[in-house]
Deep mutational scan, measured.
Amino acid sequence: MDVFMKGLSKAKEGVVAAAEKTKQGVAEAAGKTKEGVLYVGSKTKEGVVHGVATVAEKTKEQVTNVGGAVVTGVTAVAQKTVEGAGSIAAATGFVKKDQLGKNEEGAPQEGILEDMPVDPDNEAYEMPSEEGYQDYEPEA
């Protein structure tokens, strides 16, 4: 019985440690998101679009440190934060509304985080759909 109880105690310690790591990862992701939003706020009209992409990228980098179902929630929060940063930029006159959601080359930025393969159960990952990809044929 002692062996059984000791095993359960060790398992509990492992769960607590994993929860603490997840909590730490979420806190880091939130900190990076805040950094990115402050970065966007300090940019001029020309830099705002690039700044919004930076927020998304920093958040995406930190999301990889967070495991399990938390990833889905962090990704949703990050996307809403990026959308909010863009709205703030438009409201303050840093950028025109028609410039939001495009990178410096004018290509749409939507789907940055949505296409990231995420499995809350950590069982399997699927690649994003290939609808947006084109076949590449090298020139002879």
Rank of each mutant, 00 (worst) to 15 (best):
K58Y: 08
V15Q: 00
V63K: 01
V49Y: 14
T22S: 14
G86P: 03
T81N: 01
G41V: 11
I112N: 08
K97P: 04
Q62S: 04
F4N: 00
E28T: 14
T44F: 12
T92S: 07
D98C: 11
G36L: 15
V63F: 15
G36M: 15
V63I: 15
E83P: 02
A89I: 13
A56Y: 07
E131L: 06
A27W: 08
M5V: 07
H50L: 15
T75W: 15
G93A: 15
E13H: 02
T59A: 14
T54G: 06
G7S: 13
G7Y: 03
K10C: 01
K97F: 02
G84C: 11
D121L: 08
T81K: 02
A91D: 04
V74H: 01
V16Q: 06
V15I: 09
E57M: 07
T92P: 02
T72H: 10
S129D: 07
D2Y: 14
E126D: 09
S9H: 09
Q24N: 11
A90Y: 05
A56L: 15
A76R: 14
T72W: 09
V71H: 14
V40D: 00
K43M: 14
L100N: 08
T59R: 02
L100M: 09
K60Y: 13
I112Y: 07
E114V: 13
G106M: 05
K58H: 13
E137G: 04
V52M: 14
A17R: 12
Q62Y: 06
G86H: 08
G41D: 00
V77W: 14
A89D: 02
T22I: 13
A85G: 05
N103P: 06
T92M: 03
I88A: 02
G36A: 15
Q134V: 02
A107N: 13
V15D: 00
T92W: 13
D98W: 14
A27H: 11
G106D: 03
A29S: 06
G86N: 08
P117S: 05
E61Q: 09
T33H: 01
T64Y: 10
A91N: 07
V95I: 13
V37C: 05
L113E: 14
Q134R: 10
V48I: 08
E137P: 05
G31F: 14
V40N: 00
E46Y: 15
D135Y: 04
K43I: 15
V118Q: 02
P138K: 07
S129K: 05
G86K: 12
G106T: 11
V52N: 00
E13C: 03
A107D: 09
E57R: 06
G7D: 00
K12H: 13
G14P: 01
V48H: 00
I112E: 07
T59N: 01
A11G: 04
N65L: 12
G41K: 02
A56W: 13
A29M: 12
V52E: 00
S42E: 08
Q109H: 09
Y39V: 11
E139V: 05
G51C: 10
A124M: 04
G47E: 03
E114N: 12
V16A: 06
D121F: 03
E130M: 09
Q99V: 11
V52I: 05
H50A: 12
H50S: 09
T44L: 13
E110Y: 13
Y136N: 05
M127G: 07
A53M: 03
D115V: 12
A124W: 08
A76D: 03
D135V: 06
V49K: 14
A89F: 14
E114L: 07
V71C: 08
G25I: 06
G101W: 08
E35P: 02
G68Y: 02
E57F: 09
A56K: 12
E28W: 07
V70L: 12
G41S: 14
V26P: 00
A89Y: 14
K21R: 10
T81Y: 14
P117I: 07
V71W: 14
V48M: 08
F4W: 04
G14Q: 14
V118D: 09
T44Q: 01
V66A: 07
G84N: 10
T72V: 09
T33F: 01
K58I: 13
M1L: 00
T64W: 09
V48D: 00
S9Y: 15
Q109G: 02
F94P: 03
K10E: 02
V74Q: 01
G106V: 05
E123K: 06
E110P: 08
V16H: 06
A19D: 00
M1W: 00
A124H: 06
K97M: 05
E131C: 13
A140E: 14
V95K: 05
V15N: 00
E139L: 03
K6A: 05
N65S: 10
D115R: 06
P128A: 06
A11E: 00
G7H: 04
G68I: 14
V118Y: 08
V48Y: 11
D119V: 02
A78R: 06
T59H: 02
Q109N: 01
E35Q: 03
G41E: 01
Q99S: 08
P117T: 12
T22W: 13
P108C: 10
A76N: 11
V40Q: 01
A27Y: 14
H50P: 02
Q24I: 14
M5D: 00
A107M: 14
E57Y: 09
T22H: 02
A76W: 12
V55T: 02
G36T: 15
G51Y: 14
V77E: 01
Y136M: 13
G106P: 07
E104L: 14
V55C: 08
L38D: 03
E131A: 14
K34S: 02
E110N: 15
V16L: 13
A91C: 09
G73P: 02
V40F: 14
V15E: 00
E126W: 03
V71M: 11
K60D: 00
G14S: 12
Y39H: 03
P138G: 11
E57L: 09
V74S: 01
K12L: 08
G68V: 13
Q24T: 10
E20A: 03
I88K: 03
E57T: 09
K80E: 02
K60V: 07
I88H: 02
Y136K: 07
F94G: 01
T54Q: 09
V3Q: 03
G68R: 06
D2W: 02
T44W: 15
E137C: 08
S9P: 00
G93S: 09
D121N: 07
A124I: 02
T59S: 07
A78Y: 12
K21C: 03
P108E: 12
A78Q: 05
A69V: 07
M1H: 00
V49D: 01
A107G: 14
K32M: 03
K34W: 15
V3G: 02
A140T: 08
G132L: 03
G84L: 14
A90M: 05
A29R: 04
K60N: 01
Q24G: 04
K23L: 13
P138D: 07
H50D: 13
K34G: 03
E104P: 13
E130C: 13
G14D: 02
K102C: 05
L100S: 15
E28F: 05
A85Y: 13
A85W: 14
E13S: 02
H50T: 14
K45M: 10
G31W: 04
E13R: 13
M5K: 10
K60A: 04
K58R: 12
E123H: 12
E105S: 08
Q134E: 10
E105A: 11
P120F: 03
K45A: 15
Y125D: 09
T81V: 08
K43F: 11
A30Y: 13
T22L: 04
G132T: 14
A85D: 02
T72L: 11
P120V: 05
K10Y: 09
A107S: 09
V52Y: 03
A11W: 15
V77D: 01
L8P: 00
K12A: 05
E114G: 09
I112L: 06
V15A: 02
H50Q: 11
K102N: 15
V74N: 01
T59Q: 01
G68L: 06
E131P: 08
A30T: 07
S87H: 13
V95C: 13
V55K: 01
A107T: 15
G47C: 07
V48F: 11
N103Q: 04
G132V: 07
A30S: 06
G73F: 03
S129E: 06
N103T: 08
P117M: 11
T44A: 08
K23Y: 13
V77G: 04
D98F: 01
S87M: 14
V74M: 08
V63D: 00
Q79T: 10
K6P: 00
P128E: 08
G84M: 15
E28I: 06
